[in-house]
């Protein structure tokens, strides 16, 4: 009951501040930018010219899987940043402004407060991301060749878990700190650390959350879900849940004021 009240209020807020408009648009642009520009690259080069006489540019053939992966690689950079930016103030902002005082003085369980806000933001992010990937799929089919709908759905499902984790890390720090800047810094720091760890130990850490996209590529190429992808998904979802619970435990012990 209270959970739905907060969830609905967040949804209303996203309408009022136009998040429901601009976040999907940003994700659509991120998703289609790379496939489209690489398709038209030869034409662009031809028209712009400027290449010395006799120079020939070999542009490697882009297959549909590569094209779809381009969208994911934009998401993993700018998509993640967008998520962090729109999520960092989720809890921290309300605590800093003082609204949280009026909310938490009502008999609201802290777990309800955190999880409903988390779920609302996740709804916004995942919806935008799915719309974005559908747009990408449309152009990939049009320009590069066919990717099966079922493969798209699998991609959406598995890669979405990475966004769940990124969002949860941001919410986690948003529960810990009052300042959005500190939340931003800590989240990016954490992601960079994960990225470095994965880069160094990728040969042993086959189930590490960062390996999601390489497993997805394999899935798209072979047409079957590799075992490591299930493992990675399990780890990603598990660590998100644990982070959310730890965030609640810490938040509950903290003084709200």
């Amino acid at each position: 009951m209270q959970w739905r009240t907060i969830y609905r209020k967040e949804m209303l807020e996203y309408w009022r501040n136009f998040s429901w408009i601009w976040v999907p648009i940003v994700f659509i642009i991120l998703a289609i930018m790379d496939p489209i520009t690489s398709y038209y690259l030869p034409i662009i080069i031809d028209n712009v010219g400027g290449l010395p006489e006799g120079a020939s540019v070999e542009i490697p053939e882009v297959n549909p899987t590569d094209a779809l992966m381009m969208s994911l690689s934009e998401f993993s950079m700018f998509g993640v940043l967008v998520i962090i930016f729109i999520t960092m103030g989720l809890i921290a902002g309300e605590r800093k402004s003082g609204v949280a005082e009026l909310i938490l003085v009502k008999p609201v369980h802290y777990a309800t407060y955190i999880s409903s806000k988390w779920a609302a933001k996740l709804t916004l992010v995942l919806t935008s991301y799915i719309i974005g990937l559908f747009a990408s799929w449309y152009y990939v089919n049009l320009l590069f060749g066919n990717i099966a709908f079922s493969a798209l759905v699998q991609t959406i499902g598995f890669y979405g878990l990475w966004f769940v984790l990124v969002l949860t890390i941001t919410v986690f720090f948003s529960c810990l700190f009052k300042s959005s800047g500190v939340v931003l810094g800590s989240t990016i720091g954490t992601l960079l650390l994960m990225f470095s760890i994965y880069n160094i130990f990728s040969h042993v850490l086959t189930w590490f959350p960062n390996s999601l996209s390489s497993h997805i590529r394999e899935m798209l190429q072979t047409g079957s879900v590799p075992n490591a992808l299930w493992g990675t998904s399990f780890i990603t979802v598990g660590s998100s849940l644990i982070l959310l619970i730890v965030a609640y435990v810490i938040f509950q012990k903290k003084e709200v004021a």
Binding site: M1, T5, I6, R16, G98, V99, P107
Partner: peptide, 22 residues
């Protein structure tokens, strides 16, 4: 110094916190 969600109307806010109070 009470702070409210400034994008809500007075009535919306009261209904919101009222529902939070069960």
């Amino acid at each position: 110094y009470p702070v409210f969600h400034s994008w809500m109307t007075g009535k919306e806010f009261l209904v919101y916190v009222g529902q939070l109070a069960n």
